[in-house]
Every structure is written in C-alpha cells, then in structure tokens.
C-alpha cells in the first residue's frame, strides 16, 4: 500500500522542484542572458570603454566597499531622502488644500501645469545661483522635481473622493481634522502612492544630475570623476550601483504601499 503513496509523494516533490527551477530560470534568465552577451561583446570587441563584466564586478567591490560608501553613497542617499521627504510633505499638504477647495484649484491649476512642464534639471543652474553650491541646493533640486507628481496626484485623489462617503461623514459629524484623517487621506491614498512612486524615479535622476554640477561628493560626482580619469570599469560600477539603488528603493516603497494600502489591494483581489 505504501508503494504508490511514496511514488506519488516523490512525484509531488519532483514537480515542486521543477516548478522552483522554472521560477528561478524565469527570474534570472534575462539578466543572465544580458551578462553573457556583455561578456561576449567585450571579448570580441576589445573596446576600451566596454570592459568585461568580471572587471566591472571587481571594480565594484573595490570601489564601493570602501570609504566611498561613507563619503559618496551615504551623502547622496541622505540628500535624496531629504529632498524626497520635503517634496512629499509639501506635495501632500498643498495637494490636499487644493483638492478640497474648488476655488483654489481653479486659480492654481494652470500655474501648476506650467511648473510641471519645466524639466527639473534646468532648475539646477538657477537654484545654484539662489542657494549656493552646498547640500541645500541639491536637496532643493530634488524636492523641486519630486513635488509635482505628488502634488498633482494628491489633488486628483482628493477631488475624486466618493460623494456618498463624503455625505456619510457629514451626516455623522465627521469633520475637520477627523475628516482629513479618516476620509481625505486614506481615500486619496492610492493616488498619493502613485505620485510617490513616480517621484522616486525623478528624485534619483535629480540626485545624480545635481551632483554632476559643482560638487565634491556623491554618486553623480564620482561617476563623472571616473569618466574623466579614464577609470572605465569604476565608472561602469557606479552606473550599476545607481541601478541597484533605484531598484531597492522602489522595492521598499512597494513594501510600504502594500502595508498602508492593504485594504485597496485586498479589495481589488476581492473583486477579481
């Protein structure tokens, strides 16, 4: 009697292993293919500017697992987070105010659209003139780019609050701060999160760009420095690090969103 049972269990285990292998292959397949073609290209071409992945990996370990982590990576991250937090506070704060007041919205909307249309990197020279070349400038540049998607998404989210829910609040005396906390912010939450997601990638771009101008530390500064010093594998490793950084930050943000908006995702699944 145990024979068929064991066999079946073995089968189950086999298919499970198979499935895991398939998943690993799907996830790792494309990156592996990219690295392999990179390797092939660098062997064939002998192009000085395209070093082999192995050399870049070595440069990565040597460059970033050193005092550069403290001198360049951390300052970059700190500026990014400061600018991002500033933009989030200003964007959500202003967005709620504008979203709740039709008059304010009518007055502000064209101006907002105009400001949003200005590519944030062109503000770097201007802000540098106004605020000097210190950390403050870089934080301001990052914040000035990040604020628009957060602000505009918050306005949209607040404007689209459910009328029935709004009436319910009025009937049951839920007003002012309580209304903000229980209706406006959670109701606009999915849109605010969408804004925060867009802002994060803009923030990383601006972090790098702001460090390429008149700077003495940071990832952007270091990458330009390597390029000028013909330290090509090091330069590549910096680009790699930026990619990884953006990936990890986006992952963290998604984690946060899953927590804060669990009701939203749950409802989506429930409907499907």
């Amino acid at each position: 009697m145990t024979g068929p049972e064991t066999v079946r269990r073995k089968d189950v285990r086999a298919t499970r292993t198979g499935r895991t292998a398939l998943r690993v292959l799907t996830v790792a397949g494309v990156p592996a293919l990219l690295v392999i073609s990179w390797q092939l290209y660098s062997t064939v071409s002998e192009n000085f500017y395209v070093p082999a992945p192995g050399r870049v990996a070595r440069a990565f370990a040597e460059t970033w697992f050193s005092e550069r982590l403290l001198d360049d990576v951390l300052p970059s991250l700190a500026r990014l987070l400061a600018g991002y937090a500033l933009a989030a506070a200003a964007g959500v704060g202003l967005g709620v105010a504008i979203g709740l007041s039709p008059r304010l919205r009518a007055a502000a909307e064209p101006v907002l659209e105009f400001f949003r249309a200005i590519p944030p990197p062109v503000l770097v020279p201007l802000i540098m003139l106004l605020a000097g070349i210190g950390d403050g400038t870089k934080v301001l540049v990052i914040a000035s780019g990040c604020v628009w998607p957060i602000l505009l998404n918050t306005v949209e989210g607040v404007r689209a609050l459910d009328e029935v829910l709004s009436d319910t609040c009025r009937m049951y005396g839920v007003r002012d701060l309580s209304r903000l906390r229980h209706l406006v912010l959670p109701g606009a939450g999915p849109q605010i999160m969408a804004g925060l997601r867009q802002a994060l990638s803009i923030g990383i771009i601006l972090m790098v760009i702001s460090e390429m101008f008149a700077s003495s530390s940071g990832l952007g500064f270091t990458i330009v420095l390597f390029q000028r010093g013909f330290q090509i594998p090091e330069m590549w490793s910096g680009i790699l690090l930026l990619g990884l950084l953006g990936y990890v930050l986006a992952l963290l943000l998604r984690r946060l969103e899953r927590r804060v908006l669990s009701w939203h995702h749950g409802r989506g699944v429930g409907r499907a």
Partner: peptide, 11 residues
C-alpha cells in the same frame, strides 16, 4: 444610503 458599497469606509 442605497449605495452600501460607497457609504462604508473600505479602509
């Protein structure tokens, strides 16, 4: 209200 799905706070 008639619209029960919209009068309760989903969060």
């Amino acid at each position: 209200f008639q619209e029960y799905g919209r009068s309760l706070f989903p969060w």
